[in-house]
Nucleic acid binder design. Structure first.
Lengths: 310, 310
DNA sequence: GTGGTTATACTCATGGTGAGTATAAGGAGA
DNA sequence: TCTCCTTATACTCACCATGAGTATAACCAC
């Protein structure tokens, strides 16, 4: 057998839940926190998906329902320190999992994703950190580009990603935003990867290695999917009020929605059906409990929850 | 160092071009044909993307522009024969690349994708193979399910995937369709993977290992992206007529579009701008040549070509 | 110049969407 | 019991995008 350079493959999981209107991901305690991950076992795991399920169970005690492969990360400089210490090149196959309820997990904590990405939560309006910190820093970074073409390109990317100037905010582009901030040296990981002291940037919780990038990938994928696949229901109990549904969508998308229109669209699309039961703990008029209407899958090829710009 | 079970990682590429209204992918000659692929070199390739570019250049002579990671395939039973012969577990990171023109490639041929997936081309109406072969075979497979729940599930999946009954055809679900046919034993690879003689199914060109599944993944991803990202232009020359643009979109999506409405939407969205030059070889009135209007990226977050159902 | 072909302009009905107003049905406290 | 506050739900209206089709323009071959 020819000598082969060593490649390690591990599986990393972004396990998401929404509690009290806050999306959270499961993180392993530590500073900085890291995603649950485990080495892929080519003997025990007959498929990557099953491998992902296995070590999520082992590490967090959670039995996940919805699982989806996100992306495979394999840049050489990711986790430079870890690789120098351990063995060869590290490839991480990242997974997104959605779980219904917050459950206790030994050695793991639920980390609100908007601590990782404070610029992503627009439910109370555009976060002040964008005009006050991010926009000026990105524009300075763009202005410092070596040549005119690069200057134009950086400026345009900043405008598109963060909705500056005439560009509109597109909640889906979460990964693009993180990568731009990384490239501009505005997140802690940029400096950590280079063994430098931390630079300036918007206050935000970093993660180990490139785990925050993986989390951003998950957010982007999930936000993109909300609009054309009924994935939200993986995060809700079997019966829920329309407002509860809306709050979960808003939490994930990071935007506020018009209540009456949300309701109208969800009902008219046949996404949900009334159960005849009511939730009386609303603080006002009782709200009917609805459940996901499975038949919608047959009726409409794209069945998602209404979001602006679609 | 602890003994590690061997994991091989290779990169497989779906390299797409559209010529004469036919989407084609680059395949390495042989029977069955295979995708261009190469072992990932953890020493030479600093990133997976660069690795993909490198061996595409090495194997096909093409310098690709647009490249996007698709998915990582790692099931144990994929390429069972190859793994038994060679080494350990094989992981393939698949890439999609779009190239502008058909160029000669030594040892490689352009393989029309609708030879791989005859059921995907609805430009001349729904292919006869669906009602005549696929639908009956899938329904028979569903009826043969071990229990009632599974029977219902299979029937529903078949209806949704192939637009049977009340369900509408959704051109994006190409991977779902291939996977369903595989599961039902209606593609040659199903039997090849089990060392059985080929069974019945729609006439179609198989590929080596799970390469046809990878190709289906590429089709699904590309069709999905058409509607919200200006990716088509990677496949067109710098200047093109609106009909040429429409034909490429139709070729990829596998559906026919209304000419006047396509034109209206593309122009009103600001996706293209007239060049003032004209193509006189249309066979009728000369058509203005248009080019992609780059500013659209700043103006609209989702800028894609119009497709039905969006 | 006639007919064939493709390009391009315009019309019209329909349905979805954003935004807002109005009404219903609970609870808490005077 | 009445009032007020809160949330749920129904309805209206203007606007725009879309599907479908008709009409006209501009080239070629004969």
């Amino acid at each position: 057998m020819p000598a082969r350079p060593a490649i390690d493959v591990d599986l990393a999981g972004v396990i998401l839940a929404v509690t009290n209107d806050q999306p959270r991901l499961l993180a392993r305690a530590g500073e900085p926190p890291r995603l649950p991950s485990g080495r892929f076992d080519p003997v025990a795991d007959s498929t990557l998906d099953r491998g992902a399920r296995r070590w999520v169970r082992d590490q967090t005690g959670l039995e996940v329902g919805y699982v989806e492969q996100l992306y495979t990360f394999g840049d050489r400089d990711r986790g430079a320190a870890a690789q120098a210490a351990g063995g060869g090149r590290l490839l991480s196959v990242a997974y997104l999992a959605l779980v219904r309820e917050e459950q206790p997990a030994p050695g793991a904590t639920w980390l609100p994703i908007y601590q990782l990405f404070p610029w992503e939560d627009h439910r109370l309006g555009r976060p002040a950190v964008i005009p006050e910190v991010i926009a000026p820093a990105l524009l300075a970074w763009a202005a410092a580009a070596p040549d005119e073409a690069e200057r134009v390109d950086r400026t345009e990317r900043a405008q598109v990603a963060f909705g500056l100037g005439q560009a509109a905010w597109d909640e889906v582009r979460a990964l693009e935003r993180y990568e731009l901030l990384y490239e501009a040296g505005l997140v802690a990981e940029y400096h950590a990867d280079r063994g430098e002291p931390a630079g300036a940037g918007p206050a935000s919780q970093p993660m180990a290695l490139d785990h925050r990038r993986i989390a951003a990938t998950a957010v982007q994928r999930l936000r993109g999917k909300l609009g054309y696949r009924p994935v939200v229901f993986e995060l809700l109990p079997q019966a829920f009020t329309l407002l509860a549904l809306q709050r979960v969508v808003e939490a994930l998308a990071g935007v506020r929605l018009h209540k009456q229109n949300f309701r109208r669209t969800v009902e008219r699309a046949g996404l949900v059906e009334g159960t005849g039961r009511y939730d009386t703990a609303t603080g006002g008029r009782p709200a009917e409990l609805f459940s996901f209407r499975h038949e919608v899958l047959r009726e409409r090829p794209r069945s998602g929850v209404p979001l602006p710009g679609r």
